[in-house]
Design a protein around this nucleic acid. Structure first.
Length: 316
DNA sequence: TAGGCCATCTGGTCCT
DNA sequence: AGGACCAGATGGCCTA
């Protein structure tokens, strides 16, 4: 099925066009100012767009009043854009890193949003209960692995990354589900987490490096064991939301700081490149996957994306 | 100190 | 004519 391309984004531009349109999101008929005009040594040249090629006069600079009002409008416009970015930051699931007053950059936010939309699209294209069925689990090694691990221990095996800094506005993203439904399906929890870390954090920017290294380390080394061995009580005390942070990443990783009785204590070696106070509070990060199939998602007029056992996030 | 990110100013272009 | 949008330039702030 041919997809509607309102912005003509799919047309392959020539290399020259690529250069010219590097920062342009819409076709502009006037992106042909590559060479300064001899008549205008300051680089300005009149456009030839229109019915005649008659050259226009170089526009006079705005009056001081109009320049000021234009600047004010521009500031207002940029403020709106930034507010939209802020809303997007809250909506996109990520390992919050603002314990150091860090926040996702704009480009990171956009990249995460793209990934998130892609993941949600995958979820929408799959039956809501598919992952809970034995057949689905057999076709989804990660889900099956999680389910079996949970069944055997009554533990949590599905990792959930929360969005936003507020637990009440979290959007859980079941990593196992994403792994099963994304194009790059993983075969086990380790690779699943690794993929997530790479896709959502690792490639997103240095500001996420702490979070990425956390998840990446878990993925690269002991995450599966960690997930399987994590006592339910301890799991419940973890959250990926810093606002309810109760311990540092180091505490989580090495099992210190009174992690619900020290579940998984000493599981991980210390060569983590983590600051001692990096908050990795993982409450609800590990939910009983097998017992909680993905909640149905209905975007038709429903501002709430997830319900049931999960907190809701309203997208305004 | 270099590089990344950002806000702001500014001028050009497009649209109403 | 004036507002919206865009992109280049610039300087400040922060971090590695």
């Amino acid at each position: 099925m041919a997809e509607f391309d309102a912005n003509n984004n799919s047309a392959a531009p020539s290399p020259a066009e690529k250069t010219q349109e590097k920062y342009s999101l819409r076709p502009r008929a006037t992106l042909k100012r590559e060479e300064p005009d001899d008549d205008h040594e300051d680089g300005w040249r009149p456009t030839t767009r229109g019915r005649s090629a008659k050259r226009r006069q170089k526009p006079k600079p705005l009056s001081r009043y109009r320049r000021k009002t234009a600047n004010a409008r521009e500031r207002s416009r940029m403020r709106e854009i930034n507010e939209a970015f802020e809303a997007l930051r809250r909506a996109v699931p990520h390992l919050a890193v603002d314990a150091h007053n860090e926040k996702l950059t704009k480009i990171t936010t956009l990249r995460l949003a793209m990934k998130y939309i892609s993941a949600l699209s995958g979820l929408l294209s799959a039956p809501a209960t598919a992952l809970a069925t034995p057949s689905a689990q057999s076709s989804c090694p990660a889900a099956a692995a999680n389910a079996s691990a949970s069944a055997g221990r009554g533990l949590v095996a599905g990792a959930t990354i929360m969005s936003s800094s507020s637990p009440s506005s979290s959007v859980p993203v079941d990593l196992a589900a994403l792994g099963c439904l994304s194009p790059s399906t993983s075969d086990d929890v380790d690779s699943l987490l690794s993929e997530y870390a790479t896709d959502l954090l690792g490639g997103a920017g240095s500001e996420c490096s702490s979070a990425a290294s956390t998840v990446g380390f878990l993925a690269d080394h002991h995450s599966a064991a960690f997930l399987r061995d994590l006592p339910g009580a301890a799991a419940a005390s973890y959250a990926l939301s810093p606002s309810s942070c109760s311990m540092s990443a180091t505490d989580v990783i090495i099992g210190g700081g009174g992690v619900g009785g020290g579940g998984g204590g000493g599981c991980f070696p210390s060569p983590l490149q983590l600051s001692a106070d990096f908050p990795v509070d993982v409450a609800a990060a590990f939910l009983p996957f097998a017992d909680h199939p993905l909640p149905p998602i209905d975007f038709n007029g429903d501002p709430y994306m997830f319900e049931d056992n999960f907190a809701c996030t309203e997208f305004s």
